[in-house]
Design a protein around this nucleic acid. Structure first.
Lengths: 118, 118
DNA sequence: CTTGACCTTGGACAGTACTCCAGGGTCGAG
DNA sequence: CTCGACCCTGGAGTACTGTCCAAGGTCAAG
């Protein structure tokens, strides 16, 4: 598919898609007229990219794990492993948030949450 | 206290503290020799800043809410309200993560998590 | 008085993640 | 053949969050 369609399907801008391709997050073959031609898998891949980004990964990190995945014969298996890792990460983050929450609750309870300062 | 001490107590660099002052996140009076003089409350305030930052607030947003707080007669009350807001935000974020997690779990369960693509 | 640790300013530079633009090519419909 | 919608490249610009540096002032100890 061409860039406009991919952009439409993923909610990204064309410029962002081009940017992602430049940074190695995405590869596309070229049509004879020079237009990029993305495989349909680019759509779920970009969804995955957004997920990983939401988890705090930088695009460079995402690209790196993507590259590791690429060329592996058991890609599906590896990706499942990766997703399981991300799930563990989500759990850790959730726990962190719970801790932070408890801290804030305690501070709200005390008369003096902290000094305003600025 | 002077900048070095504040930096030491908060784990920030002097440059970062100066940067925070430039951006209005922090105010300091000046000693006769021009040195910055921070109040002790700057320490918990910077801790709060780090917390808010971890929750995804930009420094500008943090500075804005800080400024709103400042000058209010019922600062402690307002800050408690702010913290309650942040708690709600944590809850929302936790829910988001749970959703993401469910999505990933589902994908791991399916044989085809997504195509590697890049 | 010198030395070293500390402080000041202004400004340049970095990395991340885009976003926009100019100038120009491609293609299907009318 | 023209029009509009699409595509290309290269490069500039933006916002955010720092980080580093040069040039120089301050201060207490030796």
């Amino acid at each position: 598919m061409r860039i406009g369609e991919l952009a439409g399907l993923t909610g990204l801008s064309r410029d962002t898609v081009r940017f992602y391709e430049r940074t190695g997050l995405l590869t596309a073959r070229r049509l004879s007229n020079g237009y990029r031609d993305f495989p349909p898998e680019a759509v779920p891949w970009l969804r995955y990219v957004r997920t990983a980004q939401a988890l705090g990964f930088s695009l460079a990190e995402i690209a790196r794990t993507g590259a590791e995945l690429d060329g592996a014969p058991d890609a599906a298996e590896q990706l499942s492993a990766l997703l399981r890792e991300k799930i563990a990460l989500i759990d850790a983050r959730t726990a962190e948030l719970a801790e932070l929450r408890a801290d804030l609750v305690e501070r709200v309870g005390s008369g003096c949450p902290l000094a305003p300062a600025p």
